[in-house]
């Protein structure tokens, strides 16, 4: 199989820290929702870690649990119906799940910030963008109205909104989609958070604007050395900015790897399918590849490996045994019984 080329010299060296606590460590996290139809297990034992200055891309289709994991880290799940029966979310060594709601709201916005997919609905329509950015300084830092607006204008300049001083009193609907997402970003980095979670930040934007927003995020991250979790279903978006990738499927992590490894040689059939479904110029005119079948129904998960109904390499034990996350190397792991064969290209 021919792999998409990746400029490996642009990628920072693996910044794994041995012996010290990473910035964020999600450990065996479970999240479930109680619904009328039954209990939906949206996240089933997800673990990942992130160091300062690192970018982790969490990849997966809708319903894979990638956003729910992020919302659990942020502490913005509606509980009930959501519940976290098991797991830890350690931020700088402290388990966030053990903190009171009051303590968590101190961390939210100040140390961990989040950017949402659709900036038009994520910004409040009845307040000016300046008000919404300045609010961060007024509420968290007790700043005066005048000072906080000065800060808001500075931030709008920093995310390169033209004529920030004139536009500070405009409302969200008066901005274009890309500019609105810049406002969201300005708001999220207002208090220099250590960790920024971007939940599909470019999905609602057109392609040229997508690249600009990703560039802006990468630049802001370089300047401030914050950790960045990039949630996306778009493989094209992550290649240039991510250090490592966690691929999620059916509420589990199916593959964990540094970004160049995964593009060069995936170790899970699902990842392989995702990579093959990227449209490519050199394959023009040929039928587009698609992973067959539908995403799993979270109310009625398949037995064994959740991916087995769609897997081209399925064996008998895939239907019965849930695969563990096998360590392939110090930085890679795959939740496939046949990861060796997938890596070698001898599977199936």
């Amino acid at each position: 199989m021919k792999n998409p080329s990746v400029d490996t010299h642009l990628l920072p060296a693996d910044s794994g820290t041995i012996g010290t606590e990473p910035l964020l460590a999600v450990d065996n996290l479970h999240v479930e929702f109680t619904t009328r139809q039954g209990v939906v297990r949206a996240v089933n034992g997800v673990s990942y870690a992130l160091n300062a200055g690192e970018t982790l891309a969490v990849l997966g289709e809708s319903g894979s649990g990638k956003s729910v994991t992020a919302q659990a880290i942020m502490g913005i799940l509606d509980m009930p119906p959501a519940r976290v029966p098991k797991g830890e979310i350690r931020f700088r060594g402290t388990d966030l799940l053990k903190l009171s709601e009051n303590q968590r709201s101190q961390i939210r916005g100040q140390q961990i910030a989040m950017i949402f997919q659709d900036a038009l609905s994520a910004l409040n329509p009845v307040f000016t963008v300046g008000w919404q950015i300045a609010e961060m300084f007024r509420v968290h830092k007790g700043m005066s109205k005048k000072d906080s607006y000065t800060k808001a204008i500075e931030l709008m300049d920093r995310v390169r909104i033209p004529a920030a001083r004139q536009r500070v009193n405009d409302y969200p609907h008066q901005f274009s989609g890309g500019m609105r997402q810049r406002i969201m970003i300005a708001m999220s980095i207002a208090l220099d958070p250590d960790l920024l979670i971007a939940d599909e930040p470019t999905t609602a934007l057109d392609v040229t604007v997508q690249a600009q927003i990703m560039e802006l995020l990468a630049e802001l991250q370089r300047d401030s050395n914050m950790g960045l979790i990039l949630i996306t279903h778009d493989l094209g978006v992550v290649a240039d900015v991510a250090d490592k990738i966690a691929v999620m499927y059916g509420g589990r992590i199916v593959e964990n790897a540094p970004v160049h490894d995964i593009y060069r040689n995936p170790a899970h059939p699902y990842t392989k399918g995702l990579l093959e479904s990227i449209p490519r110029v050199d394959m023009k005119g040929q039928e587009l590849y698609a992973i067959k079948g539908l995403p799993p129904n979270l109310l009625d998960m398949p037995t064994g490996c959740a991916f087995h109904p769609r897997c081209p390499f399925r064996q008998d034990n895939c239907v019965t045994d849930v695969p563990a996350l096998h360590a392939i190397s110090g930085t890679r792991s795959s939740a496939c019984h046949y990861w060796r064969e997938v890596l070698d290209g001898t599977a199936g």
Binding site: S105, R108, G109, F116, S121, L123
Partner: peptide
């Protein structure tokens, strides 16, 4: 609404 979720994510008091 999404903007209420945003306000919570901004760490605003309830």
């Amino acid at each position: 609404a999404d903007y209420v979720r945003t306000a919570i994510a901004k760490g605003m008091p309830r």
